[in-house]
Design a protein around this nucleic acid. Structure first.
Length: 509
RNA sequence: GCGCCCGUAGCUUAGUUGGUAGAGCAGGGGACUCUUAAUCCCAAGGUCGAAGGUUCGAAUCCUUCCGGGCGCACCA
């Protein structure tokens, strides 16, 4: 029998030439055969089904070899495996991430019905109607009294025992990964609970959720390289946002006093275990408080989120048990550098060469052209972070690293900024927001000089943002949380690709 | 961007010092009315990531390219 669609007419996919592979031809022929018998292999609907998980729950009490009276039900799912026994056949169905066995035999289904039931392929989606019983071997099973094909699958599923191992295929064809490795779905549902929990928590605290532009005429709010795109009708280049920060602060000017946004940021940087070009960020701004209030918010919120995701405020990371309950200790950068390296910020600023020699002596790779800010960053990352396992607020950053943060009243070269570090990883970044338009302009101008000197990640000067500040922005604390990285920490995974459904890869072919 | 490793059937894989590819699952045919990695029998399925090179002979050695992984660098 001819396939219902000639190979050359099929678009898309990775095969455009030649005949479809043998297994696909066989299934296309099967589809033609079903249609010739007035059976539609792609059904329109299947109403009134009971989820498989519900059946497992409701009939858990059934004894071996016992039939449940009044258990008539409709179920549907993907055929995951098949065990044929001549005039009887067992299928394992899966809906979502629950499995349930179905039994069919020729006496009940009839000659044609049984033949169609047992010729289901692994991968097909079928619906059945019948009653519930438990087999002699103790497996909860639906005894099919009728059965219908709902969706015919043209492709073979990965092997049932080893599943899909190949990481490339898993990321590129996540739909197959989800079928073959259901624990992936459970993990990604954990991420979903994290985001939902965060939203609920912030709303309960009186924060209002907003959405600000992803397409921005000037990319701002972070030190990073942006993606550039083009708007045809306006004939102008636009940037995918690297942060929502400057727009959220404009809202503070406009009168919002507690706002947050959860959304995608885009940074044109390398891809790694902890970097995806698009990633999810939660940013919030809270008027009339400073970074101290933000620290309290973070140490209160994170344990709640952990509970939401894992059921506990204790997590396992870096080979240790970590307790997330507040309060978290607060340490200044200066004291941490002193403790771990015997260096002070003032000393590093005054004598960078001495600091570089010392860092090299610790095996940290520093370049002669590294700026003061880069030195501090490297020192923290390599010599300090790894020793911080339990949650800690690391506070009071050098001004050069933070063009949007407010200076400390005690030291104009220090800004009121903190990061929370857990298991050696930064999970958020926050500061008392700079609201002095004159100071902000000066900082932008410093950044512009860095930019002119070749630093592509330096901040650009945003006149409209300055204009907003000139109207007056209330004092405020702001917070940014990398949602993907927080999810990694709470779910105990090492790769950002395990918390992103469709991580960025080089395009196929 | 640099370094190391990997790529064999739809999936999971074997393949010795270079002698021209072997299996399990899935798929096809057959047997089997409570199995569950069901079992048993039969047949089919491969441009060994691609292109060059060395060789009488390459999945195997060399070069380049493509794709991926890991580490480093960059990066909040």
């Amino acid at each position: 029998m001819e396939p219902s669609v000639p190979p050359e007419d099929r678009g898309g996919g990775e095969r455009r030439e030649g005949r479809p592979p043998e297994w696909e031809q066989e299934r296309l022929a099967e589809i033609d055969r079903l249609r010739s018998e007035n059976v539609e292999p792609y059904a329109r609907s299947f109403f009134g089904r009971t989820p498989l998980g519900k059946i497992a729950e409701d009939y858990a009490y059934l004894e071996t070899d016992q039939k449940a009276e009044g258990s008539h039900c409709r179920i549907a799912g993907r055929v995951m495996s098949r065990r044929e026994h001549g005039k009887a056949c067992f299928l394992t169905l899966r809906d979502g991430w629950d499995d349930l066995q179905v039994y069919g035999n020729i006496d009940t289904l009839g000659e044609t019905g049984f033949s169609r039931f047992k010729s289901s392929n692994v991968g097909d989606i079928i619906g059945c109607e019948g009653h519930v019983f438990r087999t002699r071997r103790g497996e909860l099973t639906v005894f099919a009294e009728s059965s219908i094909i709902l969706t015919k699958s043209l492709r073979p599923l990965p092997e049932k025992w080893h599943g899909l191992q190949d990481r490339e295929t898993r990321y590129r064809q996540r739909y197959v990964d989800l079928i073959a490795n259901p624990e992936v779905a459970r993990q990604l549902c954990g991420r979903g609970r994290l985001v939902a929990g965060m939203r609920r928590y912030l709303e309960n605290q009186g924060f209002v959720e907003v959405e600000t532009p992803v397409l921005q005429p000037l990319p701002g709010g972070a030190l990073a390289r942006p993606f550039i795109t083009h708007h045809n009708a306006l004939d102008t280049d636009l940037y995918l946002r690297i942060a929502p920060e400057l727009y959220l602060k404009r809202l503070l000017v406009g009168g919002f006093d507690r706002v947050f946004e959860i959304g995608k940021n885009f940074r044109n940087e390398g891809i790694s275990l902890v970097h995806n070009p698009e990633f999810t960020m939660m940013e919030l701004y809270w008027a009339y408080v400073d970074y101290n209030a933000i620290m309290e918010l973070v140490e209160s919120m994170v344990p709640v989120l952990a509970e939401e995701v894992t059921g506990s405020t204790r997590i396992e990371a870096a080979g240790e048990e970590i307790e997330l309950e507040a309060p978290w200790p607060r340490r200044t950068i200066d004291s941490l550098l002193e403790e771990h390296l015997g260096l002070s910020l003032a000393g590093m600023r005054a004598e960078p060469q001495t600091a570089k020699t010392l860092l090299r002596g610790r095996g940290i790779d520093v370049e002669n052209r590294d700026t003061f800010a880069m030195l501090v960053d490297k020192a923290l990352k390599h010599a300090v972070w790894p020793s911080i396992v339990q949650p800690m607020f690391v506070i009071d950053y050098p001004l050069e690293l933070s063009p949007l943060a407010k200076s400390s009243p005690n030291d104009p070269l220090i800004v009121e900024r903190f990061q929370a570090v857990i298991a050696g990883k930064e999970i958020c970044n926050a500061f008392s927001e700079l609201n002095d338009p004159v100071d902000q302009r000066r900082r932008f101008e410093d950044q512009a000089r860095n930019r002119a000197a070749g630093d592509e990640e330096a901040h650009v000067l945003d006149e409209d943002f300055l204009r907003a500040l000139e109207y007056g922005m209330p004092p405020a604390g702001g917070l940014g949380v990398g949602v993907d990285r927080l999810a990694m920490l709470l779910l105990g995974v090492d790769s950002i690709r395990d918390v992103i459904l469709f991580p960025q890869l080089r395009p196929e072919q």
